[in-house]
Amino acid sequence: MRRAFGSSRIILSTHPAGALYQAFPPAEARRILRRLEFHYTPKHASWLNMVEIEIGVLRGQCLDRRIDDPKRLRREKRRWERKRNAARSRIRWMFTTDNAPRQRGRAYPATSKES
């Protein structure tokens, strides 16, 4: 469980509601569940690659130096995010089902039978 950045709402990521009942007494689990909003996302999909790309851009354009003050870090991140959104920056996702065999071949090269 973690707090959403800049929000008082708690987000439970990949755990089912029943996990709260395993970790807390029933009354506490119900109290927490009332404050949660579940967002179910696949654990393995190309959208994760896009997230990793975006984090890499953030790291390269905004977090490329030491920022030792948490408040300044949040300000810098917000400033970067506003500029990126204003520029309507996008990730150009080029993977298609047509190029899947070629991509798979690079990830899983064929091995010779002699080895």
Rank of each mutant, 00 (worst) to 15 (best):
K71S: 03
P26N: 05
E114C: 08
R35W: 09
P26G: 05
P109L: 12
L73P: 02
T96M: 03
K43A: 10
R82Y: 04
S112N: 13
M1K: 11
L20F: 03
E76T: 01
R102A: 15
K43D: 10
L33M: 07
L73Q: 04
A110P: 09
P25G: 11
R30K: 15
M50P: 05
L20H: 00
R66C: 07
E52Q: 08
T41H: 15
I91A: 06
Q61T: 08
R59W: 00
N99F: 00
R9A: 13
I10T: 13
E28D: 10
L58Q: 07
I91P: 05
G105T: 08
D68H: 08
A110T: 14
I32F: 05
P16Y: 00
A100V: 08
I55S: 11
T41M: 13
E54H: 11
R59G: 01
W93I: 06
M50S: 12
I10W: 15
R75F: 14
I11V: 11
S13E: 08
R35F: 09
L33T: 03
P109I: 08
T96V: 07
W47I: 11
N99H: 03
V51C: 12
S115Y: 12
I32T: 02
A27T: 01
T111C: 12
P70W: 06
A19V: 04
I55P: 02
G56W: 02
L73N: 01
G18D: 07
P101A: 06
R106Y: 13
G105K: 09
Q61A: 08
F5I: 13
E52T: 02
K71I: 11
L12A: 02
S8E: 13
R92N: 11
L33Y: 06
R9Y: 06
P25I: 09
S46F: 15
A86C: 10
I11D: 04
R92I: 09
L12C: 09
L48S: 07
A19E: 10
I67F: 01
I10E: 03
H39K: 13
G60E: 03
R35A: 09
R84V: 15
R9D: 13
A45P: 05
F38Y: 07
R102Y: 08
R2Q: 08
I11K: 10
S8G: 08
P70V: 04
R84T: 15
L73S: 05
A45D: 14
S7C: 08
R92A: 09
L12T: 01
E28R: 13
N99C: 07
R82G: 03
Q22R: 14
N85A: 14
R102D: 11
D64V: 03
P16D: 02
W93S: 07
N85Q: 15
A107L: 15
Y40F: 10
R75H: 10
R9V: 11
Y108T: 11
D64Q: 00
E52R: 06
S8W: 06
S112P: 07
T111N: 13
R88V: 04
T41N: 14
M94E: 15
M50V: 12
W80K: 03
R3P: 04
E52W: 01
Q61F: 07
V57C: 01
K83R: 14
R2L: 09
R82M: 13
R88P: 02
L33F: 01
P16S: 01
V51H: 12
A45V: 03
R72W: 02
Q103F: 11
R92K: 12
R59K: 14
G18N: 11
G6T: 04
D68I: 03
I67H: 07
R9E: 14
R9F: 07
K77D: 00
